[in-house]
Computed example of a mutant assay.
Amino acid sequence: MDDEEARTRLLDVAEALFYAEGIQAVGMDRIRTGSGVPLKRLYRIFPAKEALVTAYLERRDGRWMTSLREAVAAGSADPVAALFDWLAEWFSEPDFRGCAFLNAFGELSAAHAGVLDVVRRHKAELRALLADLAGPDREDLTDQLLILVEGATVVAALNPGPEPARRAREVAERLIRSNV
Score class of each variant (00 low, 15 high):
1 M>A: 13
1 M>F: 09
3 D>T: 08
6 A>P: 08
6 A>E: 04
10 L>A: 14
11 L>C: 13
13 V>Q: 01
13 V>C: 01
14 A>L: 06
19 Y>N: 11
21 E>R: 07
23 I>M: 09
25 A>F: 08
25 A>S: 13
27 G>S: 14
27 G>N: 10
29 D>A: 14
30 R>V: 12
36 G>S: 09
41 R>K: 07
43 Y>K: 14
43 Y>N: 15
44 R>H: 15
44 R>D: 15
46 F>D: 09
47 P>D: 09
47 P>V: 13
50 E>K: 05
52 L>F: 04
54 T>G: 10
54 T>P: 02
57 L>I: 14
58 E>L: 12
62 G>Y: 01
63 R>I: 13
63 R>F: 09
63 R>C: 07
64 W>Q: 01
68 L>W: 00
71 A>T: 00
72 V>N: 02
74 A>D: 14
75 G>K: 00
76 S>T: 13
82 A>H: 02
83 L>I: 07
84 F>E: 03
85 D>C: 02
87 L>E: 10
92 S>K: 00
92 S>H: 00
93 E>Q: 14
97 R>V: 01
97 R>N: 03
98 G>H: 04
101 F>T: 01
102 L>S: 14
103 N>S: 15
105 F>G: 06
106 G>Y: 03
110 A>D: 13
110 A>C: 13
116 L>S: 10
116 L>Q: 13
116 L>I: 07
132 D>W: 05
133 L>P: 01
135 G>Q: 10
137 D>Y: 03
138 R>D: 06
139 E>H: 07
141 L>S: 06
142 T>C: 12
143 D>H: 05
152 A>R: 00
153 T>E: 10
153 T>W: 04
156 A>T: 01
159 N>P: 04
159 N>M: 11
159 N>F: 08
160 P>Y: 06
161 G>Q: 05
162 P>V: 06
162 P>M: 03
164 P>E: 00
166 R>V: 09
169 R>M: 10
169 R>E: 13
169 R>T: 04
171 V>T: 06
171 V>A: 10
175 L>H: 05
178 S>C: 11
179 N>T: 15
180 V>W: 03
